[in-house]
Nucleic acid binder design. Sequence first.
DNA 1: TTGTAGGCGTTATCAT
DNA 2: ATGATAACGCCTACAA
Lengths: 338, 338
Amino acid sequence: VQKKPGLRTVTILDVARHAKVSTATVSRALTGSRPMSDELRDRVKESARELGYQVNLVGRALRQQRTSTLGLVIPDLENPFFSSLAQRVSRRFGQTQVDVLVASADNDILTERRAVESFLGRQVDAIVVIPSDELDSRKAVGMASEYVPTIQFDRFVPGLAVPFVGVDNAIGMGHVIDHLEREVDTERFPVVFLGGGQSSSSGRERTVTVTGALPDAWVLDGGFSFDWGQQAARKVLESGLKRGTLVAAADIIALGAMSFIVTSGFRVPDDFRIIGFDDVGVSHLAFPTLTTVRQPITDMTNEIHSLVQRGTTDGSLKATSALFAPEWVMRQSSPGAN
Amino acid sequence: VQKKPGLRTVTILDVARHAKVSTATVSRALTGSRPMSDELRDRVKESARELGYQVNLVGRALRQQRTSTLGLVIPDLENPFFSSLAQRVSRRFGQTQVDVLVASADNDILTERRAVESFLGRQVDAIVVIPSDELDSRKAVGMASEYVPTIQFDRFVPGLAVPFVGVDNAIGMGHVIDHLEREVDTERFPVVFLGGGQSSSSGRERTVTVTGALPDAWVLDGGFSFDWGQQAARKVLESGLKRGTLVAAADIIALGAMSFIVTSGFRVPDDFRIIGFDDVGVSHLAFPTLTTVRQPITDMTNEIHSLVQRGTTDGSLKATSALFAPEWVMRQSSPGAN
DNA sequence: TTGTAGGCGTTATCAT
DNA sequence: ATGATAACGCCTACAA
């Protein structure tokens, strides 16, 4: 790097000269790729330190044809659920010295495409993508998978032969429905489902499950946002309902609804029961704490990690779906045994 | 990229052969770095398309000695304020075809160091860092600035000759204090300041300004988190206060306080007035909407952009502080003229 | 306008 | 155990 004035880049050649050895030896000393005498290794390392040598990963990548880098494309960094997933993926891969580059599609298909192209150009070893849109992301995801092992996370583009890691929404909503049957008098507290829209696989699946099991529930469909939760709650109150059970397709929706409900003078869970979905990131942004369904993020990131591992070694990646069972999390916004 | 089985990397040499031209011509055709006949350019581009050529940015970077890449280090991706800043920085640089790589320090000094090292190794053209800790980040920030143009954003490590872009906290808190003097009867609604801790420059500056101007205010100091906001509000209520003005050092703190206050049966702003700081990202996670002080993010990211521009061309970067004046945003959580 | 060729920094192969 | 060297993909100075 010679961005700073008067600073010449220090390369292994400089280190080699300083330590009076060959560049090959320097490389081996610094990476530990071959055994060598301790004395020599120390001398080389000392020279490197003295000269302020920093490895140039660009040169290494060109030579090795791999970068130890994963590209992660998420729809929106401002959505705390996604940024939370980003954090967790980074952390998991960091454990094995794989750098995760995070790019936001900014909810824009073109930006998403550019992010994928940039990652491919950077020779990332694999790409993990949370598709921004069920249909329009097809091209971006397809392109990624054409060149490197690619995994869809949290949502998938249907009909694409690209592995998917996500949560089993039927089981998750099943937990909610069980809870309603067991603990809630749905005559007195009628169920309203606050959906996350039909433009993502997760949104659709959650809606389908709920409408299937509770044909009498009132369904309001919107998007995965706090604003939508507020609006939906407003509609509920404007309908004259004084009590009810609000089942949201995501915590962020539940939070919006809860804030509107509480601010309007109703109590949670006494008047309205509120149930979320995800328990990731935003869930601690709630008071009273939110009853929800927890996505097993650790398991999912582990699965992604092992899929990537396999994909980058074998070079093959079967187009399987890994669906993880979410867990019921009983908290304060809903009545229950404990 | 030859990560996929049976897929050989397509290079400009392949394209050159296919189009029956030289590699130089291919390079020129694809980058547009030199004028050439339209017919030939089209032929080359067509060949590239046909073969599925993808530029290898690693090769390009090694040759050009620059990457058109900015490294952004933030303390925590799960904090919506920071992820929001990340989003905005990415968006701004995306406008000029500069990729932004986002790395989370995960609130850990060692991880922060590694992120910086990784960025340096990747030969990023510049680094923007929001230091995780006022003291412990010194080494990481210092190292970054030793090799590439580096800018501190939002917080700074004192005594380091590295430019800083941030908000003028004195002016910001000044807005709040003006508001209190003008609109709030602080006898009836005593002021409680909910601080963000003393381990970051922004936290300290905000506390200092408030305690200076309002020596009688009750000061509770904690951290920049929702949880702390809740805890602080609990303390306030436990003190027996039935009315008050809660001035928070950040929106996220204000939100935590508000959720506790409202859930405890008090009304905002009737019983408690709540005022935040930042108006970034999280601010729409509130109902009633939060009166706050807006950081001029657009101006700040523009400034960062132009500093980086200058730094990467001149190679020099003066250690200046660019302090931007925040703006008063009157909303519902506080009483006011409109 | 187009082609030739060298080199960016690193590592793996082949000698020694 | 260590050294010499070619090659990764690209761009650009120089030549034609």
